Amino acid sequence: MPQRLRTTLYYAALWLVSLIFFAPVAWIILSSFKTRNDILATPPKLIFSPTFENYVDLFTRSTFMLQLINSVFLSLAAVILAVFVSFLAAFCFSRFKPKGTDFLMFLLLSIRMLPGPAVIMPVYLMYVAFGWKDNHIGLIFFYAMFSIPFSVWILKGFLDGVSTRFDETGRVNGGSWFHVIFKVVLPQVKPGLIAAFIFNLIFVWNEFLFNFIIGGVSTQNIPYALAVGAYADGGLNWTFIATLTSIYIVPPVLFIYFFQKYLLVGMTFGTVRGEV
């Protein structure tokens, strides 16, 4: 088979697979511009008169903007806090190697192995006792706690790939540890920071269970809105679901598109990097 034909078939197969995986997303976006009758039509309508009424109805809901702002605020605040703490912890594990580092790293990762429903009751009782229920700060700390273990694993892999000679050179030339950590080492692990940020952002952005249980009226996010607003008039409110979902997937899609090269590196936990 000629090389040119083989290359053409290869890219055609890639496009086919991509279109198959994108088809459900495209159908949801198209449905957001349909009326309820068009969505429920049999056979499904591919040609229809688009309407923006669904988006107008969504944005005029009294709770939608609060839920959207909560999703953005909780996600960004929790993940930024988690990545900052994780970077310092990973630097400690990578450079100072405290006794029992491997066991401590295992304990950190084991936190993420626990299923959410297994810990929801003690977390709920703790939040009620501390008065943190329906509290933005409480949810931010909780999401950060769940995001830190995975971030530490990613960032430690990247930091292990940065030579300690940079640290030694900085210290010999009179630099403080603050200067070495944030001015010398941090810029070299920027791909790891971005990868950890996006992975955890996706987790917090999609989290529903804990927001539903330990959150409240003032901390409702978009997954909460999808769960409680999915039914209307005795059935599924497909126009609401399609419209809200179309808006909901935009931020993570944009993040992944612009930083996709860092995600690929982050999936290897930095292990493919040699010492620099």
Rank of each mutant, 00 (worst) to 15 (best):
Q3I: 05
R4T: 04
R6Q: 08
T8L: 15
F22P: 02
P24G: 04
V25S: 14
W27D: 02
I28M: 13
S32C: 04
N37I: 06
L40F: 09
I47K: 06
F48S: 00
P50D: 08
T51I: 10
E53P: 04
E53V: 09
V56G: 04
L58F: 03
L58Q: 02
T60E: 12
S62T: 07
F64Q: 05
I69D: 02
N70V: 04
V72I: 15
A77L: 14
I80H: 04
V83M: 04
F87L: 15
L88R: 12
A89G: 06
R95S: 01
R95G: 00
L107N: 15
L107D: 09
I111W: 00
I111V: 12
I111E: 02
I111S: 13
R112T: 03
A118D: 01
Y124Q: 14
Y124C: 10
V128M: 14
I137C: 05
L139G: 02
L139S: 04
L139R: 13
M145T: 14
I148D: 02
F150Y: 15
F150N: 10
S163R: 08
F166S: 04
N173E: 14
S176D: 04
W177T: 12
W177E: 12
W177A: 01
H179I: 00
H179Y: 13
I181R: 13
F182M: 06
V184C: 00
V184E: 06
V189G: 03
L201I: 10
I202E: 03
F203C: 03
F208G: 01
G216H: 12
V217L: 09
Y224S: 02
L226M: 08
A227R: 10
F240Q: 05
I241E: 09
T243S: 14
L244G: 02
T245N: 05
I247K: 08
Y248I: 07
F255P: 01
I256D: 06
I256P: 01
F258I: 04
Y262P: 01
V265W: 02
V272L: 11
V276L: 12
